[in-house]
Write a protein that binds this DNA or RNA. Structure first.
Lengths: 115, 115
DNA sequence: TCTTGACCTGGAGCGCGCTCCAGATTCGAG
DNA sequence: CTCGAATCTGGAGCGCGCTCCAGGTCAAGA
């Protein structure tokens, strides 16, 4: 199977090598397979997963939230707990969208005023 | 004119006393008027402004961004610079909304999958 | 074989946004 | 006038999310 070096994985995902190692330490990704000499070899699945993590980070979720997400998707929890967790996170994101819209309304008002 | 003590202002705005002082030090609010003895006396205008700052903080703007906003609204910049700044901030918020929607789509997919 | 560069680990450092603390001062109730 | 609560200042401390560094290992080309 074709794998990626750390540098290549970083380039593909837009996440720095240091951050990839950090995410692995924190249990957000991996554990990443190693070559004979101990170097990391990222699979396509790893890259995909890193993309998910990045997506949630950009949406403002914290490292601890992401750890919860990992635990959920690894089926370490009963189904109803999974759905509950996911809905809760979704609600938090909706709150955040609402906050953004409030701020945008204020900006729009000021833009109108100064235009 | 009726003014508020620090404790009252904190209660009204939902921002801690320490944070109010911090915002003032950073130039995001105030300077707040003082009583003879040196205590802060928050006006209704101050409270309103603190509300604006809070609105933007909740939307994810940083302290430096807010400082820029303060400078703009205090008319320390030419009109076109004001509008440019405001539009730029607005665009950033839209980006953030887009990031949130992407994350919500992923969550929705997982929720569907696990339901 | 030698060199060069990518990678390894553990741990220190950093910027942000508060939050807390010590020690002094002021204010209002009794 | 006294006492306790609220506030003052300057500065230290903290949690987060990286980011950087030193000192050593591994791998591929000349």
């Amino acid at each position: 199977m074709t794998t990626l070096t750390p540098a290549a994985a970083a380039a593909r995902t837009g996440v720095s090598i240091d951050t990839l190692r950090y995410y692995e330490r924190e249990g957000l990704i991996g554990p990443i397979r190693r070559s004979a000499g101990g170097r990391r070899a990222y699979t396509e699945d790893d890259v995909f997963w890193i993309g998910l993590v990045t997506c949630f980070r950009e949406a403002g979720l914290g490292i601890a939230d992401l750890r919860g997400f990992v635990a959920i998707l690894r089926a370490e929890h009963p189904p109803q707990a999974r759905v509950a967790f996911l809905r809760e996170r979704r609600a938090a994101l909706e709150q955040q969208v609402a906050a953004l819209h409030r701020a945008m309304e204020v900006l729009d008002e000021k833009i109108t005023y100064y235009s």
